[in-house]
């Protein structure tokens, strides 16, 4: 299968700060790829570059053979590049149902409001929020807001789904439910880019890992191999502790 979404030498600078530095990678259809890296590594910036919130300063973003580097966020949404936010972004006064319907109406295929609401019910049932479809979004608990975010992006009929820390702040049981959802979404043929802090989550579902450090891609490949990579361990623990860990391991 050919590359679905490809980044070629993408850089993003904010003034003198290089938040993303010469990153290249490709995603294939239907795979789950984990994107990890310490705080401030540039993971969210990378998603912002892909979705056109902060267009790349250098390099190209190619989606389904089409260059989309300069696209606007709403164009990204309509092309099928959906994302969730690390800090959830609901429409607070609307009902849960209408939040999801907004995704279907504008991001999905153009259709009437009634049809969009019908679709929304299906996606809400999928993430388990259908019983509270008529509540205002502002009244939801954090785990439910994360699920709402997920349903909203699913309603947009995405081809690539970028999940920015959907599991942050959830407890173990809630994470298992979320992981199950992620697997089921992937089974539909949707490519998933999973941005995550929790190693347990990343290791258990990702087929491939990308590691970002100071804006640069420092490792890529199979999860087990990547987490034992010298550079990756150093990035997370610092050189000194990495060395100590290695000595302990060999001792």
């Amino acid at each position: 299968m050919s590359d679905y979404l490809r980044l070629e030498n993408v850089s993003k600078t904010f003034g003198g700060i290089r938040a993303v530095n010469d990153v290249s990678f490709a995603l294939k259809q239907g795979e789950i790829v984990g994107l990890i890296g310490p705080n401030g590594a540039g993971k969210t910036t990378l998603v912002n570059v892909i979705t056109g919130v902060h267009p790349a300063s250098l390099g190209r973003v190619i989606f389904q053979g089409e260059e989309v580097t300069r696209q606007k966020p709403f164009q990204a949404a309509r092309r099928g590049l959906a994302r969730t936010f690390q800090i959830v972004q609901p429409f607070p006064e609307m009902t849960v149902l209408d939040n999801v319907a907004a995704g279907a109406l504008f991001g999905g295929s153009p259709e009437g409001l009634a049809e969009a609401r019908e679709h929304a019910h299906r996606h809400l049932a999928f993430v388990g929020l259908d019983p509270i479809a008529d509540q205002p979004a502002a009244s939801l608990t954090l785990p439910n807001r994360k699920r709402l975010e997920l349903a909203k992006s699913l309603a947009m009929n995405p081809k690539v789904l970028m999940l920015d820390e959907v599991n942050a702040g959830l407890n173990t049981g809630e994470i298992d439910t979320a992981l199950d959802l992620i697997r089921r979404i992937s089974e539909r043929g949707i490519t998933i880019l999973l941005i995550e802090h929790l190693m347990k989550v990343v290791m258990s579902v990702s087929q491939r890992l990308l590691v970002l450090h100071h804006g640069a891609l420092i490792a890529e490949g199979e999860p087990q191999k990547v987490v034992n990579d010298q550079h990756v361990v150093e990035a997370y623990l610092g050189e000194k502790f990495a060395k100590r860990l290695k000595e302990m391991g060999h001792a």
Binding site: R78, F85, Q89, D98, A102, F106, G107, L113
Partner: peptide, 24 residues
């Protein structure tokens, strides 16, 4: 009753999120 009004309400409540769900 039209998508225009729905989109405008989305913008009122959260413009960034409206952008992200595909509202121009």
């Amino acid at each position: 009753n039209h998508r225009l009004g729905f989109g405008l309400k989305c913008i009122r409540q959260n413009e960034d999120a409206a952008d992200m769900v595909g509202v121009n």
